[in-house]
């Protein structure tokens, strides 16, 4: 073995030991640590005359949880299928850990864990049989396979249903089996297609927690059309519609694009807050009153901070305010604006 290979080996070992303490450890498998973990380059996919994905270039750096957002039919699933090697790009390419999915599909697939939309699995098999199949397909030897099996089953709390047919499991459990399948070989890169879609709030919470744990030492690409998920999970967001890239930013940056960013809203039940008075503040641009619950939102002029002046004014007037809030910005509004407004970068 050349000296270089020994070095790599020891590095791998160290990484492994470091991560052993964590709930779901990762063994380094990436050959090109300096490269982006997931990268698409002018990725395009056409179905006949329809262009589902149009010259999309996105990248996820190591340790990132990248959210792929878009309305239904935006091309999210198609992008993920191409990265996972299920669909062949019409042009352009994607790289996973530096492996080109078109030129080195098997290598790319080895370092990738993939949860397809709806978490399909062989329903007639038991959880144990299914995971055993995946472990065999992933080429793990008996010892590693057993160790990983135990860890994943423990981490996803599947012990109780190991010998149950997957068909008989609840949706939430089936999703967990899907996640187990995706991480059983300890991939550095995870692609999860709508992992919480169709789950109840408790199950969503569980799955998000799991993703949070997994995100500690992996790069994750996650698609969703749920905006609440973005805050809960992602540290960067890519918004696409009609297969085109419309925005690529952090959640905070997106919120800053919102009309509501920096606005102050409060409820003052039973008191006649004078809108006129608020409007006279030099920092205030406009005021809106919610016709349903009477909540008042005050919008700042660009670059102005208005929480303090508004609070002072309210105190001076001796008005009773039940609760006051500085808005970070509303992602749903930004999302709507970006995906329907026809305006690229707001």
């Amino acid at each position: 073995m050349p000296p270089q290979a020994w070095m790599n080996f020891s590095v791998t070992l160290r990484v492994d030991q470091r991560l052993e303490e964590r709930a779901l450890p990762v063994v380094g498998a990436c050959l090109l640590p300096q490269s982006d973990m997931i990268e698409t380059e002018q990725l395009t996919r056409r179905y006949g005359a329809l262009t589902a994905v149009d010259s999309l270039s996105i990248r996820a750096e190591p340790g990132q949880v990248l959210g792929l957002l878009g309305p239904n039919g935006a091309g999210k699933t198609t992008v993920m299928r191409m990265i996972a090697g299920f669909l062949e790009p019409s042009s352009g390419t994607a790289r996973v850990c530096g492996y080109d999915v078109r030129r080195e599909p098997l290598k790319a697939k080895r370092v990738l864990g993939y949860l397809p939309e709806g978490a399909p699995s062989y329903g007639e098999l038991t959880v144990r049989e299914f995971l055993t199949f995946i472990i065999r397909m992933r080429g793990l030897n008996r010892e590693d396979g057993y160790r990983r099996f135990e860890r994943v089953v423990g981490g996803l709390q599947l012990e109780g249903v190991l010998d149950q047919c997957i068909d008989t499991l609840s949706k939430g459990l089936r999703r967990r089996v899907g996640l187990a399948q995706a991480i059983v070989h300890n991939p550095q890169v995870l692609v999860l297609d709508e992992p919480t879609d169709g789950l109840d709030p408790n199950q969503k919470h569980t799955v998000r927690q799991l993703i949070d744990v997994m995100a500690r030492d992996r790069t994750i690409l996650i698609s969703t059309h749920l905006l609440e998920e973005v805050h809960a999970l992602c540290n960067r967001v890519v918004i696409i519609a009609n297969g085109r890239l419309l925005a690529d930013a952090t959640p905070a940056e997106l919120e800053a694009r919102s009309r509501y960013h920096g606005a102050v809203s409060f409820s003052a039940p039973g008191s006649g807050v004078s809108q006129e008075m608020l409007g006279r503040l030099p920092q205030v641009a406009s005021i809106e009153v919610d016709p349903l619950d009477g909540r008042i939102t005050v919008f700042p002029r660009p670059g102005e901070r208005i929480l303090e002046p508004v609070e002072t004014l309210l105190r001076q007037q001796g008005l009773e305010v039940s609760e006051i809030q500085l808005e970070r910005g509303r992602l749903d509004e930004v999302f709507r604006h970006i995906t329907t407004g026809g305006e690229g970068h707001a």
Binding site: A84, G85, F86, K109, Y114, P116, E117, G118, P120, G123
Partner: peptide, 14 residues
Amino acid sequence: KGGTLELLLSLPLT
């Protein structure tokens, strides 16, 4: 039909 094809073909095999 069952969607497992997507799973199978994303595993490392030709």
